[in-house]
Amino acid sequence: MQRVNMIMAESPGLITICLLGYLLSAECTVFLDHENANKILNRPKRYNSGKLEEFVQGNLERECMEEKCSFEEAREVFENTERTTEFWKQYVDGDQCESNPCLNGGSCKDDINSYECWCPFGFEGKNCELDVTCNIKNGRCEQFCKNSADNKVVCSCTEGYRLAENQKSCEPAVPFPCGRVSVSQTSKLTRAETVFPDVDYVNSTEAETILDNITQSTQSFNDFTRVVGGEDAKPGQFPWQVVLNGKVDAFCGGSIVNEKWIVTAAHCVETGVKITVVAGEHNIEETEHTEQKRNVIRIIPHHNYNAAINKYNHDIALLELDEPLVLNSYVTPICIADKEYTNIFLKFGSGYVSGWGRVFHKGRSALVLQYLRVPLVDRATCLRSTKFTIYNNMFCAGFHEGGRDSCQGDSGGPHVTEVEGTSFLTGIISWGEECAMKGKYGIYTKVSRYVNWIKEKTKLT
C-alpha cells in the first residue's frame, strides 16, 4: 500500500490518463441519441435557420407576430419608411378606419389613436360632414345658397324668414311668412316636400332668348283662358290664391305678392273693366268669414305684352289694390325667389296649380277651390304637342294621358313649387288646347323671366 501511494504521488498524470480511459469505455446513459432527441424537440425550422439574422431580410411573422416588435424591426421587413409607417399605425392600436367614419364618399386613412378623412370636392370637416359648395344638395341650405369668396357655403332665406341657429334652416321672422300653410287642420295635408338634388348652379339658368321682337298675326285659340281631375282644397291650404270678379264672377285667378299687390295673367284683364279681388276665398257660393274683398285701382301688364300681336306672350300683369290686405292664416303671400332659384325650383319637376275653373272641358265651374299636382314636361315634348308657338318664356306641365289639367277660369292662378315646406311661385296658368285632352298640356308663363320686374313694381313704400 505504501508503494502504491508513492507511485500516485510521483505520477499524477498517469492516474488522470487511467481515469479518462475508464470513462470513455463506459456506456453513456444520461444523453439520448440524435434521433430520439429530435422526437422530443420537434420544432419547425425557421426561415433563416442556421444563418445569422443580421444578414437576412426581415420576416413579418418572425419579427412582429411571434413577439412584439419595434418600429426598427418592422422597418427591416418593409425596407421602406412609408410602408412601415402605414403598417405601424394599425399594428400599434388597430384600424381606426374600420367603422368607416368618413361621410359623403370620403376616404379614410388610419393613424395612431386617430384617423384622417380625405374629402371629395365640396366637403370638409373631420368626417367630411361639412358642405362647402352650393353645387351639392344646395349646400344643405333649406332655401338659398351662395358661395363666399373663400368658396364656403353661405345660406340665406327669402323675405319674412331668418336663418336658424344651425345656419342652414329657415324659420319665420314674421307672423305670416310667405308660402307657408298655417291653418292647423290643413298642415297635415301639406304636399310632399321637395329635397334639393345635386345641381350645376353655374349652368342652372337656361341660355334662352326671349323672342321679344317676333311679330306674329293673332292666333285663334280655343278655350285658351284655361282644375280638371283635381281635388277639393281645404280652407287655408292655398292662402296665396285669390279669385278675380268682373263682368262675371271667378273669371280668373291670381296670387298675393304682398298686402297691396296681386300677380295674374295679362290676358285676364281689360282696361276700363272694374275688377274686384277676393282673398281668403274657399267656396265661392258661401260666406265663410275668411274672405277679404278689395278693388283694383291700377293694372300693370308687362311692358312687352301686346294682345294685338299675341294674347299669351309675356302673359303676366300686376294688380294694385285700393287697401292693403290683412295677412292671416287664410290670406298669405306666395314666396318669389330670384331668377336663378325660381328656375331651379321649376326644374324640380312638379308643381301645384289651383283655381275655381271648370271641372271638365266646357263644363261647370268649381264651387270649392280645386288643386292638382302636375309634372313638368320637357321642352321637346311640349313643342311636338301643339302647332302653336311655345315661346321661351312659357313652359308645359300636365299629363300625356289627359284627364287632369287646369281649365277655363283658372287662368292667372299660381303654379307653385314647394321647397322644404315653403311654396314659391314658378308659373302662372296661361293657356292650353281644350282641357285635359290626351297628348295636350297646360301652358304656363315662366315666372323666372319676370321676377325682377315683379319685385321692382310691387315694392311697398
Rank of each mutant, 00 (worst) to 15 (best):
Q185K: 11
C382A: 02
T386N: 12
E129R: 02
P324V: 04
Y22P: 02
G94Q: 14
C119L: 00
N48A: 14
K234R: 13
L52W: 11
N113H: 11
S350L: 14
S423A: 10
P172Q: 07
C102V: 00
C69V: 04
Y330F: 13
V273N: 12
H34E: 07
C178K: 01
S156G: 07
C435E: 03
P324T: 03
G160D: 08
N100R: 09
F71G: 15
A266H: 02
R298P: 00
T84G: 08
V353N: 02
T218Y: 09
T461D: 15
C157W: 01
E35M: 09
V416S: 07
I309W: 08
N283C: 05
E208F: 07
Q57L: 09
R364L: 08
Q167M: 13
I275Y: 06
Q370G: 08
V419C: 04
D405G: 12
P120L: 06
I299A: 06
R140G: 10
C119P: 01
K311N: 05
T276W: 07
N452K: 10
A397V: 06
F395A: 01
Q90Y: 10
T426P: 00
A233V: 07
W431T: 08
L189V: 13
K89S: 10
C155T: 00
G403P: 15
N310S: 15
N304E: 11
E193T: 06
G442Q: 13
A233P: 06
V30H: 14
G106A: 06
V377F: 02
A337L: 00
F123V: 04
Q237W: 10
Q370Y: 03
G122I: 01
G421E: 05
S220H: 06
E66A: 06
K234F: 13
Y441K: 02
Q2H: 07
F55R: 15
K68N: 15
P324C: 03
E285T: 10
G21P: 05
G355Y: 14
S49A: 05
T215P: 10
L14Y: 06
P375N: 15
L60W: 07
S365T: 12
G432Q: 08
H34K: 12
G254K: 00
L163C: 02
D93Y: 07
Y391Q: 13
L460I: 07
S70E: 15
D315R: 01
E27K: 06
W431K: 13
K168A: 10
G122Q: 04
R162N: 11
K459Y: 08
W431Y: 13
S385W: 12
I112L: 15
E54R: 08
T422C: 05
F78H: 14
Y441T: 07
K126N: 10
K438P: 14
T276P: 02
H267C: 03
